[in-house]
Amino acid sequence: MRTPRPTLRLRLTLFNAVLLVGSLAVFVLLAWLLVTDALRPADQLVPGTTVVLADGRELDAAAWQDGVVEQASRELLVKALVALLAISVVGVVGAYAVVGRALRPLQQVTSTARRLGEQTLDQRIGYSGTGDEVAELAATFDDMLDRLSASFEAQKRFVANASHELRTPLAVMRTEIDVTMADDTADLAEYKRMATVVRDASERANGLFDALLVLASSEAQSGRRLVRKVPRDLAEGVCAALSAVQAETRRLKLDVRTALDPAVVVGDPSLLDRLAGNLIENAVRYNHLHGRLWVRTGSHGSHVVYLLVGNTGFEVDQADVPGLFEPFRRGGRERTGARGSGLGLSIVRAVADAHGGTVSAVAQPGGGLEVTLMLPAADTPLPVAASPVRRN
């Protein structure tokens, strides 16, 4: 069983009382020493000197001095102890009240934290006192609640959007199967058409599952040590991603230009390759016929490397650009048919965060987007990757 401990208010009050009583005791001691030292004028007289009191008595000066010092010391001690007791009582009571008032926001923090739940994240302390440490703590707690509330809302939207995205291909598959099975006149061609639709819908669902797994893995490693940390040149991932979309770039007759200088980082190779792949896939998916695609990698000094991917396309409002990095947000209109899962840039941001980097995007005049990724450079560079310049 845990032994009860005094409250913070009581401990602060007792600490204040000890300081107050100790200071007063030292003051009384100094006053007593000063008085006893000052009341010795007879020490300067000739031995045997006598003094005549007002009542006519004649006393030895030394004896008279000892009596005066003793009486003054007694009165000083009695009055000082009474004053010490009175001041101590007033000081302790006052300290208890002041400390209680100062700690009131902490009680509000505690009561608010006890009431908090998923449905009560809108509650705040709202402390409006002076700008002291307690006010700073209350404000920090309110800021934390704001972040928690925003995180919960984002999670709710993510779950709702993910459910909707998964429900769509499943509904398509079920509808196609039910309609075809209910048609008694359906022939082999109709069943082949149904199988094609079901396959496309299952591929869409499988792609969404894969994207969700990558996003979850990236966000889980954000702010922590990466599971894998090996040198990787971003230029190599760009070359692999460009090869994967080569058929689509040829179909759209895109003008692809690359300038791939070494951009070596330390991290998870699969996540870094997925990052480059998502950027290039988006640049192709949201492009148009006879459009342009440009990719550059390199370094800024010896500590930062970059990956820049830009594309032409339909116009994107710069005010809408930050929202493109949120899950299931798609900018502009459909470019090349399938619009993807809406997780591409979300994965890019999560991977960048996991590797201690940043990602930003700028809407291009006339349409399109240019995304710039900045990552910490590796200490040991790798061999230069091939950096072709292609024109389709």
Rank of each mutant, 00 (worst) to 15 (best):
R2M: 08
T3G: 12
P6Y: 06
R11T: 11
L12Y: 04
A17N: 05
L24R: 07
V26H: 11
L30Q: 12
A31P: 02
T36Q: 07
D37E: 13
D37V: 09
A38G: 05
R40Y: 06
L45W: 14
T49A: 13
G56H: 15
L59H: 06
A63G: 00
Q71E: 02
S73Y: 09
S73P: 11
S73H: 15
R74L: 11
K79G: 14
L81G: 07
L85D: 09
G91T: 03
Q108D: 04
V109F: 07
S111F: 00
R114M: 08
E118F: 11
Q123G: 13
G131R: 07
E133I: 09
E133V: 07
V134C: 12
L137V: 12
D143A: 07
L145I: 10
S151C: 08
F152S: 05
E153G: 13
F158T: 01
N161W: 10
R167I: 08
M173N: 03
T175L: 15
I177E: 02
D178G: 04
D184C: 11
D184S: 10
R193I: 08
D200V: 06
R204D: 00
R204H: 06
D210L: 09
E219Q: 12
R224C: 03
L226W: 05
R228I: 10
V230E: 13
E236P: 02
G237D: 02
G237P: 03
V238H: 03
A240K: 00
A240C: 13
Q246R: 09
Q246L: 13
E248A: 13
R251H: 15
L271I: 03
L272S: 00
D273T: 03
L275E: 05
N287D: 01
L289M: 10
L289T: 15
H290K: 13
G301I: 15
V305Y: 00
G310I: 04
N311K: 00
T312L: 01
F314L: 13
V321A: 04
P322W: 11
G331L: 08
G331I: 01
R333I: 14
R339C: 05
V359I: 08
G366K: 14
G367E: 04
G367H: 07
L369N: 05
T372W: 00
L373Y: 02
M374K: 08
M374L: 15
A377I: 01
A377S: 14
D379G: 14
P381K: 04
P388Y: 15
